[in-house]
C-alpha cells in the first residue's frame, strides 16, 4: 500500500493564480476523478503530480518505496510519428528496462491494436493514436496513473476497453487520477470525485 499527499499546493504563472491551496490524499487501489471547465486547473494539477511542473509553493509527498513509477497521458501530447506503435513503446520501455518485448506486445494487444502492425503512427487514426498512448501509460504497471482526457478520440468500443483497463489497474493497486470533461467517465469509474473551479477544489454535486 502506498499513497500520495498533496499539501497546500499553489501554482502561479506570472500574476495569475492557477492553483490555490490544493490538499488531497490519493491512496493505492482507488480511482480519483477531477472535473472542471477549461482553465479550472485540473490539467495543471495532473502535470504537477507527474513532476512536469514545479509548484510555486506546497509539497507533493510520496509515501511508498523509492520513486513512484508514473504512467501518463497528456492531452495533445503524441508519440514519435515516424515510428510504429511497437517501436515507440520499445523506445520508452528501454529507459527503465523493467519490461520485456513480450509485455510491450501485451500492452498493445490490451488496447485492441496489433503489435505487429508495420504502419508508422502518422498513418494511424486519431483513435488508434490515443490507444497506443494508453498502452504506453499502462505497459510498465505504474504506481501512479495520471490521465488527462483519456477518452479523447476513442470510439465506443475504445471507451469501454479503456474503462475496463483502468478498473484492472486500480485492482492491481495503482493510484489512478483522471481529469476529464466527461461526467460519464468520472461517474462510472471513480471512487472519489472532485470538481475544480478557478484553481480550487470544490465538492462533488
Amino acid at each position: 500500500m502506498f499513497s500520495l499527499n498533496v499539501e497546500n499546493v499553489q501554482k502561479k504563472i506570472k500574476d495569475a493564480l492557477i492553483l490555490d491551496k490544493i490538499n488531497l490524499c490519493f491512496s493505492s487501489g482507488k480511482i480519483y476523478g477531477l472535473m472542471g471547465k477549461n482553465g479550472s486547473g485540473k490539467t495543471m494539477l495532473l502535470r504537477i503530480l507527474a513532476g512536469l511542473v514545479h509548484p510555486t509553493s506546497g509539497k507533493i509527498l510520496w509515501n511508498g518505496t523509492g520513486k513512484p513509477r508514473i504512467g501518463l497521458i497528456i492531452e495533445n501530447m503524441g508519440l514519435y510519428p515516424e515510428f510504429t506503435g511497437f517501436e515507440n513503446l520499445k523506445l520508452l520501455a528501454g529507459i527503465n528496462k523493467i519490461i520485456a518485448d513480450e509485455a510491450i506486445r501485451d500492452a498493445i494487444t490490451r488496447v485492441g491494436l496489433d503489435p505487429a502492425d508495420k504502419r508508422t503512427l502518422k498513418k494511424y487514426s486519431l483513435g488508434m493514436r490515443q490507444r497506443i498512448i494508453i498502452a504506453q501509460a499502462v505497459m510498465e504497471h505504474p504506481d501512479l496513473l495520471l490521465l488527462d482526457e483519456p477518452t479523447n478520440g476513442l470510439d465506443e468500443n475504445g471507451v469501454s476497453l479503456m474503462r475496463e483497463m483502468l478498473l484492472e489497474e486500480a485492482k492491481r493497486g495503482a493510484i489512478v487520477v483522471i481529469a476529464s470533461h466527461s461526467t460519464e467517465d468520472i461517474e462510472f469509474l471513480c471512487d472519489e470525485k472532485y470538481r475544480m473551479a478557478s484553481g480550487c477544489l470544490a465538492g462533488w454535486k
Binding site: 507527474a50 513532476g51 503524441g78 508519440l79 515507440n88 510498465e140
Partner: peptide, 13 residues
C-alpha cells in the same frame, strides 16, 4: 519538450 519527450522525461530519474 512539447511532444513525445514528455513520456521520456517522466521515466527518467
Amino acid at each position: 519538450l512539447f511532444g513525445s519527450g514528455v513520456y521520456i522525461i517522466i521515466r527518467q530519474t
